[in-house]
Design a protein around this nucleic acid. Structure first.
Lengths: 191, 191
DNA sequence: TTGTGATGTTGACAATGTAAAGATATGCAC
DNA sequence: GTGCATATCTTTACATTGTCAACATCACAA
């Protein structure tokens, strides 16, 4: 099935090609036609799988978020305590974006001048990485026999998130993995 | 000087036209050629004043930020106490973006999923609105004879900012000025 | 077997950013 | 005022891009 008329799994191939382009040259460089060309397919072929460019972008974003989540879950799995898990998650978070700086801009926006989570409740209840952090935080409270109001919980979770996200943001801007101060991150994550 | 070959003040006219387009149809609808057309000028004329599209966008952004700052300063001026000034500034902040929702996306980014200020110190020391808030906050401390460490100060300032910015963000999304709970905002701003 | 829908190709079009070459006005040296 | 350098603007041209329509090809079920 080398050079068949049908591609086989073009949809996934387009997503992968898009990710590679974003990774290699940044989002600005990506175009529908280049993605199609990267898959050795005519420039209109993507329209069989995606409504328009935005639709493809959405799919790519979802795919990147998935692999982001995989890294986070993998980091958390099998950790003895919630505290260890939170630190591991923080490191994985920063590592993910320092490995692929373009993902940060792609996921969080080009003109992102902020480093904290949106207050919007819908978002906090939707975004998988955030849900994972909340689970870890609640486990942390339980393991240490702590009692917090819901308000206090939210504030602390956002605080942790901010530290990690801000650190990732800085790491991305500098684009220098070696500039990350891991010990500093760990210490700041110890609630 | 009705129909002269030279426009007179094309640079400013282009910026104004750009602002109007963003205001009326959103940033996506803006193109160099449309801006030029709105000024009754050939599509390449802007290149005498701006290096490229991004350059024009930068100028527009700067202009919008200026009028934003004007609103904030005007709100603060002549207020008897710092507390009054902070509340007035908060209201002006939210009002500005509820009057022109497109400005929010334009200034803070389309995929802005965050509602707090970037931790980045450079930013905090550069962004005029933030500097204004810090001045008011320090005046507040002074007027009430309060002593805070630098750390505490930063946390509280970011907190105030977050409340205001988050409220503006929500107001923009709903696009409904009447949905703003001004009393709630005032109360939350009382440190 | 047949034909129906999913998948791909080709060709076309309008919108866009940008560069090059030339036209026109403005201001300054003399 | 004359003449010229420069800033400003127009015209023309071109490549890229998103999108559509018409058609080709394939897979699979009736």
């Amino acid at each position: 099935m080398a050079d068949t008329y049908h591609h086989g799994n073009l949809r996934q191939a387009l997503i992968d090609a898009g990710i590679k382009i974003i990774n290699d040259y940044g989002e600005d460089y990506l175009s529908l036609r280049k993605v199609a060309a990267a898959c050795d397919v005519s420039h209109a072929a993507p329209y069989a799988h995606f409504k328009d460019k935005d639709d493809l972008l959405e799919a790519i974003k979802q795919s990147v978020t998935e692999s982001f989540m995989n890294d986070l879950v993998e980091a958390v799995e099998g950790k003895a305590t919630a505290d260890e898990a939170i630190i591991a998650m923080g490191r994985a978070y920063v590592t993910f974006f320092s490995k692929n700086p373009d993902y940060y801009i792609f996921l969080f926006g080009k003109q992102n001048i902020t480093a904290h989570l949106k207050m919007n409740k819908e978002y906090k209840n939707d975004y998988p990485p955030f849900l994972l952090l909340r689970r870890m935080y609640l486990r942390h409270l339980e393991e240490n026999g702590l009692e917090k109001t819901f308000e206090e919980q939210e504030i602390e979770i956002v605080k942790i998130w901010s530290i990690v996200h801000g650190m990732a943001s800085i790491a991305c801007m500098k684009g220098v993995k070696s500039s990350i101060n891991w010990k500093d991150l760990d210490e700041r994550l110890l609630v």
